[in-house]
Design a protein around this nucleic acid. Structure first.
Length: 317
DNA sequence: CTGGTCTCCTGATCGC
DNA sequence: TGCGATCAGGAGACCA
C-alpha cells in the first residue's frame, strides 16, 4: 500500500526509466480511472459512477502522447509526470496509486505481464529511436482506489498541490502545530489528513507515533511544543529510513522496475498487534483510531498526564 | 466549520 | 476442497 516512501521509490524508477523518452502512443483500457482534465478540476478524480457521466473523450495531449518526459515530481503520495512538446509547451499527468496502483515497465522485446486490471498502457520511444516505440509503461490498479488526472500546465498542477499540506519528508513542528491547534481529533487522524501533512498513511502514522512515544488517540490540541517537535522529527526519520530501504512491500508493492522494498522488516508496531514491544517487551495494543487499524505500545506511548502534558518519551534514536 | 461514518473495489485470509 | 464472510485501506461524499 503505497505511502510516501513507496511513491518516492516509484518516482525515482519512473524518472530513471522514462525521462527523455517520447510518448508515441497510448492504449486506454478503462477510461474511468482517468479524471477529465480542466484547469479548475480540483482535488482527485471525479468519482462518476461507472458508465455514468461524461467520461471517455480524452484528448491525446492529456495522456501526454506526443510529449517528451521531462521529469517526474511527487508531493505526498501523488506523482506527476511532466511532459514537454516540440513547442516547449508542458502538460502534466498526475497519478495517485491508492491502495494497489502501480506502474509496470517493459522493453519492447519483453511482454508486459499478462494480468488483469491493466488500465492504461503507454508506448515510449527513446530519443535515438524514430517513431518506433522501444518500451512500454503500464498503469495497473486492481482495486481502483487510485487514478490518473491530467493538468494542462505545471502551474495547474501546483495549484492543485497547494491544496494539500507540506510534503511529510520536510514537515516541521509548525506545520503540525497549525493542523493540531484547536483540533480535538486524535493526533493519528491529523497525520492521516493529507491537508495537514502530505504523504503519511496508516503504516507510517503508527510507526512515527511509536517513534515519538505518543499515544495515537491523544487529542491533537493536547500535544505541547516538545511533543510536536518530537513527532515531526519522527515522521521525517521514519519516512526517510523507509525510502532508503526501498519502501515497504506488504503484499505486492514494487516500483516500476519490479524492485521490491524491505522497509516492512523494520516496522516496529504496524501489523504487530499483541506481539511484544521491541522496547519494553509488553504486548502491543490495537484499536480502530480514525477508522483505521491502529497498533501502539501502551507503555512506551503513554497517555496524557493529569496536567495535559505528555510524559517525556524515551525514544531518542 | 468540525469531525465522524459510509463508500468505492478486489484479493487475501479465515472459519466451517 | 469449497465457499461465503470478513478484512484491508486512500480519500471523497455525505451527514449530524
Amino acid at each position: 500500500m503505497p505511502e510516501l516512501p513507496e511513491v518516492e521509490c516509484v518516482r525515482r524508477s519512473l524518472e530513471r526509466l522514462a525521462r527523455g523518452a517520447r510518448i508515441v502512443g497510448v492504449d486506454v483500457q478503462r477510461a474511468d480511472v482517468i479524471a477529465r482534465a480542466s484547469v479548475d478540476a480540483p482535488a482527485g478524480r471525479a468519482r462518476s459512477r461507472r458508465g455514468a457521466g461524461p467520461q471517455a473523450r480524452i484528448p491525446h495531449a492529456e495522456l501526454l502522447v506526443g510529449y517528451t518526459v521531462k521529469s517526474v515530481l511527487r508531493r505526498g503520495k501523488q506523482l506527476a509526470i511532466v511532459g514537454e512538446d516540440a513547442h516547449a509547451r508542458r502538460c502534466v499527468l498526475m497519478a495517485h496509486l491508492g491502495m494497489t496502483g502501480h506502474f509496470i515497465h517493459a522493453p519492447r522485446d519483453k511482454a508486459l505481464p499478462d494480468s488483469d486490471h491493466v488500465h492504461v498502457v503507454w508506448r515510449l520511444a527513446r530519443p535515438s529511436s524514430a517513431e518506433r516505440w522501444t518500451h512500454r509503461l503500464a498503469f495497473r490498479d486492481p482495486r481502483r482506489f487510485g487514478g490518473l488526472t491530467t493538468f494542462p500546465s505545471v502551474a495547474a498542477l501546483e495549484e492543485h498541490w497547494s491544496q494539500i499540506g507540506p510534503d511529510a519528508l520536510a514537515v516541521g513542528p509548525d506545520d503540525l502545530a497549525s493542523a493540531a491547534s484547536g483540533s480535538r481529533r486524535a493526533i493519528k487522524a491529523v497525520l492521516l489528513d493529507q491537508r495537514a501533512v502530505a504523504g503519511v498513511g496508516n503504516i507510517y502514522a503508527d510507526e512515527a507515533l511509536f517513534d515519538g512515544g505518543i499515544d495515537p488517540r491523544t487529542p491533537a490540541s493536547a500535544l505541547n511544543d516538545a511533543a510536536l517537535e518530537r513527532l515531526s522529527a519522527s515522521i521525517r526519520r521514519v519516512l526517510a529510513d523507509a525510502v532508503a530501504a526501498g519502501g515497504s512491500t506488504i503484499r505486492s508493492y514494487s516500483d516500476a522496475d519490479g524492485t521490491r522494498g524491505t522497509a516492512q522488516h523494520a516496522h516496529r508496531v504496524y501489523g504487530r498487534a499483541g506481539a511484544p514491544c521491541i522496547r519494553c517487551s509488553g504486548p502491543l495494543a490495537s484499536a480502530r483510531v480514525g477508522q483505521r487499524a491502529t497498533v501502539w505500545c501502551p507503555t512506551c506511548q503513554p497517555r496524557l498526564t493529569a496536567r495535559g502534558k505528555i510524559r517525556p518519551g524515551r525514544l531518542s534514536t
